[in-house]
Simulated assay, not measured.
Amino acid sequence: MRPKNACMLLLTAFIWGTAFVAQSVGMDYLEPFTFNGVRCLIGAIALLPCIWFFNRGKEKENKVNDKNAKRDLIKGGIACGILLFAASSLQQIGLVYTAAGKAGFITAFYIVLVPVFGIFLHKNIGWKVWTAVAIALAGLYFLCITETFTIGVGDIYVFLCALIFSVHILVVDHYAPKVDGVKLSCIQFLVAGIVSIPFMLILESPKMGNMMTSWFPLIYAGVFSCGIAYTLQILGQKNVNPAIASLILSLESCFSVLSGWVILGERLSARETIGCIMMFAAIILAQIPDKKSSADTN
């Protein structure tokens, strides 16, 4: 994996982890579909200036390739947007019924699901990646689970969220090398935001006053967590084994705990410290190049 890709995915995990505080505060005033819908639309709007900036002077190039790219861009954007809407909605609903730490652990099950799904898509998953996945999963348990582990309704919602996030990572892996990453990200947020609107209007009671009260969490979750982080995910995943990408993205759980320690003054227990160390060790193990070849990116 190129260092540039690893840095992009690492920064994605960092933003997602630190955005957890903003999401929690925003949910004090807004219901799940309203919060997700508004933040996704903000993310789409935030990317429009970036699309204009990066595409100046590129209007008329190879028209045949342009047609194929447009088709892939629309298909990929719609698929990613629907998956993102479903996963984030299930996660927000699950958080109503289960503890945040437990939800974080179950959500991160995509680090196991992605390589399992990857087998059926003929992705090359070596022994080092499987070992790293096992270590990371154990680390996540130490990091997130502080009480007896039992299965409830909320846990089922969050597990379904992890299942859909796994598919999202694989869909991004398929389309990212073919299309403009910033445009793909913008379309996925637009689709996720639009799909949220009917659920928001039918099942919830969105109020402009509550949106104004939670403007900062919405802006942070929309511009940084959506606009910047998900775009970095798409750009960082180009030509990268999705199993390794999912391992790096799972550091979101570590960064959420560390940000609570640094920003909010929360204490980091010995158990959480062990969990963080194990997860970072898993990422380092997955990054060690094979002796045979360093070209195994897909």
Rank of each mutant, 00 (worst) to 15 (best):
I82M: 10
M212L: 15
K102Q: 06
K292A: 13
I82P: 01
L160N: 00
A245L: 00
T107S: 14
I169G: 02
L249R: 06
G260K: 04
V167H: 07
C161M: 07
M200E: 07
I263M: 12
V64D: 13
D173Y: 06
K70L: 13
L30Y: 07
N55E: 15
L41I: 14
F35Q: 01
C276H: 03
W16K: 01
I145F: 04
R267F: 14
F189W: 03
L160V: 08
V182Q: 03
N241I: 06
I111P: 00
G126E: 09
E31S: 14
A138K: 01
T273W: 12
L235K: 12
I219M: 13
K183C: 12
A134I: 14
A138E: 08
N239Y: 14
C226H: 12
A295I: 11
K238H: 12
D173P: 14
P242A: 05
I145M: 11
C7G: 07
I125L: 05
E266P: 00
W127R: 15
E59Y: 09
F149M: 13
I74C: 03
E61V: 10
L201A: 12
I187Q: 04
L84Q: 03
T273A: 15
Y141I: 02
I164Q: 03
G57S: 07
R71C: 12
L48K: 04
G37M: 05
G139H: 10
S294Q: 11
Y230G: 01
V21D: 08
W16V: 02
V240T: 15
L84S: 03
L170E: 05
F149T: 09
W261V: 15
T148C: 00
A99D: 14
Q188W: 07
E147Q: 12
G76P: 04
K123R: 15
A69T: 11
D66I: 01
G76K: 02
N36K: 07
I42R: 06
P49Y: 06
Q91I: 02
G209D: 12
P217V: 09
V172D: 02
L268V: 10
T98I: 15
P49F: 08
Q188T: 06
A192Q: 04
L140T: 09
K238P: 11
M278D: 06
G37D: 11
K291P: 00
F54I: 15
H174G: 04
S205M: 03
N241G: 14
T148P: 00
G275I: 01
N298E: 13
Y29I: 04
D28H: 14
C276N: 08
R271I: 03
G17P: 02
I284G: 01
A282C: 09
Q92F: 08
D66K: 11
G37W: 06
I234L: 02
A44S: 14
I284R: 02
G236D: 05
G275K: 00
G17T: 05
T273K: 08
P177E: 06
E272P: 08
Y175L: 06
F120S: 10
S256P: 02
S89C: 08
C254E: 11
M278Y: 01
M200P: 05
Y220Q: 09
K128R: 15
F280I: 15
I125S: 10
V195A: 08
A282E: 04
I164W: 09
F224P: 07
I248E: 07
F117V: 04
F20Y: 11
A44D: 07
R71S: 11
L170P: 04
I274W: 08
L268M: 13
L73M: 13
F20Q: 10
F165M: 09
S205L: 05
L163F: 15
A134N: 06
G37F: 06
I156C: 14
Y110E: 04
K67W: 05
